[in-house]
Design a protein around this nucleic acid. Structure first.
Length: 274
DNA sequence: CACGAGACCTGTTCGC
DNA sequence: TGCGAACAGGTCTCGT
C-alpha cells in the first residue's frame, strides 16, 4: 500500500483521529511488544524497547514513506514497505497472526504495526536523521523546484521510471504514483533522464505534485486486502489498466517490466524518444 | 555509475 | 475443482 499519500493519510489519522478514534498525540506509552524479530531494524537488542515505557507521543509526522512518532527522548520510525499498516486498538488483546510490533498506552489503547509480508521495519532511535539522511527532497518541500528537477535529471543518466522510484533522488514516489505522474507529464518511462528538456522537466514537476495531491485528497489507494479507506484506485489513469483505453486519447494502455516492476503507460500520450 | 537478478515474505489471482 | 505459476504498494545487496 504505502507510498507517500497512503503514509500521509495514516499519519493524519493518528494525529487528528478519525471515526471513533481519537488522536494518539500526547498518549503515554506503558509497554511495547515485538512478535517478529526482524521487524525491528534498530536497535539491535529488542530489550532496549523497554526505554519506550513512560515516553509520550509529542509529534506525528512523515518523511518520504517513513512515518515518524516523535517521543519525549526518542523517535519511532516506521516503514510499511509492501504490506505494512498501523492500526489503533485495545491493549491486552492477543496479537493477530500478522501483527509484528505494538505499543500500549496508559489509556488502554494499543498501536499495532501489522504486516503480512514481513518487509516492514521499525527503528527506535534518538537520532532519526541518521535513518532519513539518504532521502531525496520532499515533493512538497522547498527544495523540490522545477529548476532543481531539471538539473538533477541531467546530473545522471537513468531511465525515468527507475529514477523516480529511487528514494535518494526524490522521496515518496512508488510504483503507482510514478506511473501516474509519467502519464500526466506525457513522458515515456524508459526515457533517458538527461535527455529531458526544461519544459518537460517542468511538466514532470507539476505532474508529480498533482498526482500526489490527488492521492492525498482521496486518502490514498486501496488495492486488494492491504489497505482500507482510500479511493485513489478509482482515479488510476494507467496503473493496473493494461489493455484499457487511455483516459486522454483512448489508446490501449500498455504494460512492460522495468527494473522488475510492472510499468503502465500510454504509447500514444507517452511516445518513445531517444 | 547504471542495470539486472536474487533475496526477503505471504496471500491472492491467473492459467491450464 | 485443483494446483503450480505469476504477481503484488518496497528496498537492499551483489555481480557485471
Amino acid at each position: 500500500m504505502p507510498e507517500l499519500p497512503e503514509v500521509e493519510t495514516i499519519a493524519r489519522f493518528l494525529r487528528e483521529g478519525g471515526r471513533e478514534q481519537e488522536s494518539i498525540l500526547r498518549a503515554q506509552i506503558s509497554d511495547a511488544g515485538l512478535t517478529w524479530r526482524r521487524t525491528l531494524a534498530a536497535p539491535e537488542d529488542p530489550a532496549a524497547l523497554e526505554r519506550l515505557a513512560g515516553q509520550r507521543v509529542r509529534e506525528i509526522g512523515r518523511r518520504g514513506k517513513f512515518l515518524l512518532l516523535g517521543l519525549d527522548r526518542d523517535t519511532l520510525l516506521f516503514h510499511l514497505r509492501m504490506s505494512g499498516d498501523l492500526v489503533v486498538g485495545r491493549a491486552g488483546e492477543a496479537p493477530g497472526p500478522h501483527d509484528r510490533f505494538f505499543i500500549d498506552f496508559t489509556d488502554g489503547r494499543r498501536l499495532t504495526f501489522t504486516d503480512p509480508r514481513k518487509f516492514g521495519r521499525v527503528w527506535l532511535t534518538a537520532e532519526p536523521q541518521e535513518v532519513l539522511a539518504p532521502l531525496g527532497p520532499e515533493p512538497f518541500g522547498p527544495d523540490f523546484t522545477p529548476g532543481w528537477l531539471y538539473q538533477a535529471l541531467h546530473s545522471r543518466r537513468r531511465q525515468l521510471k527507475p529514477l523516480l522510484l529511487d528514494q535518494s533522488f526524490i522521496s515518496g514516489l512508488g510504483n503507482i504514483y510514478s506511473d501516474e505522474a509519467l502519464h500526466r507529464a506525457g513522458l515515456h518511462p524508459l526515457r533517458a533522464s538527461d535527455r529531458v528538456t526544461p519544459e518537460e522537466a517542468g511538466k514532470l514537476w507539476e505532474a508529480i505534485r498533482e498526482t500526489l495531491s490527488s492521492g492525498i485528497a482521496t486518502q490514498g489507494a486501496s488495492i486488494d486486502w492491504v489497505y482500507r479507506g482510500g479511493d485513489f484506485q478509482n482515479h488510476f489513469r494507467v496503473y493496473q489498466r493494461t489493455g484499457e483505453p487511455c483516459p486522454s486519447c483512448g489508446t490501449a494502455i500498455q504494460r512492460i517490466v522495468v527494473g522488475q516492476r510492472g510499468t503502465h503507460f500510454c504509447p500514444s500520450c507517452q511516445p518513445w524518444k531517444e
